[in-house]
Amino acid sequence: MQSFSTSSYLSFFFLFTTLSFVKTVLTQDGFCSAPLRIGADSNSQPLYWKVTNPTLSPSHLQDLPGFTRSVYKKDHAFITPESQVFSPLPDWTNTLGAYLITPAIGSHFVMYLAKMQENSKSGLPPSDVERFIFVVQGSAVLINISGNVHKLKVDSYAYLPPNLDHTVETDAAATLIVFERRYSGLENHVTEQIVGSTDKQTLLETPGEIFELRKLLPTSLAYDFNIHS
């Protein structure tokens, strides 16, 4: 199994570790002592609401032009919600996207948020590109070329092998994290479509840490990367 470059792996691992950390602290007051932008009780919010909403800005800075908590370094980037710029995604229907990681910053994969609206439909990735999707808000339906249908709810994910004809559709608003990478395979090793949910995966040991960690993809040679959540 191949591994990401330092820049690519740290960026991708950091985002999904952040998702796990968000799940851990949902019952707490927040990430810092500064007042939250929205005064609602965290327990009443959707699971990943802090991932897609700029709620952590100190109240006295929330309307300050140019204020952001985003960080861009040579070995990682963290693009917070107030810095995300959404525009229509090519070949997708009724969907806006915000790119978080691209080859322009040195990675060999693409990661973006896809905000799907009512009656939305995904496009296909480029030829020989594998795709991984993770639902952070709402729900979506995955349909592949064989006609198999899977409903993906929050915390569900799907791995789509390269050149697999498929669509992701919604009849209401949903937000996905989408990861795409040109597949680097080995002879006689073939990947398959995988659909799962993080709570069904085995917990890995993380001594001394406050977050939970799981591998979402098999560790066999056919899969040239893995996802930790």
Rank of each mutant, 00 (worst) to 15 (best):
S5I: 07
L15P: 02
T17A: 14
L19V: 02
S20A: 15
L26W: 05
T27Q: 12
S33V: 10
I38G: 05
I38C: 11
G39W: 06
A40T: 11
A40D: 11
S42H: 14
N43C: 09
L47Q: 11
Y48H: 11
K50P: 02
K50T: 07
T55G: 08
H60L: 10
L64V: 15
P65F: 05
P65W: 08
Y72C: 13
K73E: 14
A77M: 10
T80I: 11
S87R: 12
S87K: 13
N94P: 03
N94K: 14
Y99W: 09
L100V: 04
I101E: 05
G106S: 08
M111R: 13
E118N: 12
N119L: 09
S120Q: 05
S120W: 05
K121V: 11
G123D: 11
G123F: 07
L124R: 13
S127P: 01
D128Q: 15
V129R: 10
R131V: 08
V135W: 04
Q137W: 03
A140W: 04
G147C: 06
N148L: 14
V154W: 02
S156T: 07
Y157T: 05
A158Y: 00
T167R: 14
T170I: 06
D171I: 09
A173L: 11
T175W: 03
V178Q: 00
H189W: 05
V190S: 12
V190G: 00
I194H: 00
I194E: 03
T198C: 09
K200G: 07
T202N: 11
L204F: 02
T206E: 11
F211R: 12
R214N: 03
K215F: 12
L216N: 08
P218W: 01
P218I: 00
A222Y: 02
Y223W: 00
D224Q: 08
D224N: 13
I227K: 04
S229I: 13
